[in-house]
Amino acid sequence: MQIIVNGTPMQLQTSPMTVQALVTHMQLTGKRIAIERNGDIVPRSQFEQVVLQPGDTLEIVGAVGGG
């Protein structure tokens, strides 16, 4: 299944896949991140429950230096 993460297409071998599994797959476990899926925030508490669908568009963000 293909999804789009931060503007880049990503091919997932495992399907179905939860948001949490994607986070693990991307080696972002333990990192302070926030995720938006198709325009809506996925609360951290729901990472285990939310199952990704083909064509999902995700934004994964963190805090960086800025003014």
Binding site: T29, K31, R32, I33, A34, G62, V64, G65
Partner: peptide, 20 residues
Amino acid sequence: VTVAIRRTNIGQHANEPSLL
């Protein structure tokens, strides 16, 4: 302190320090 919100670098090293 102000911070910006940006896309995480996909494929960055997991143990790289972050601003936080």
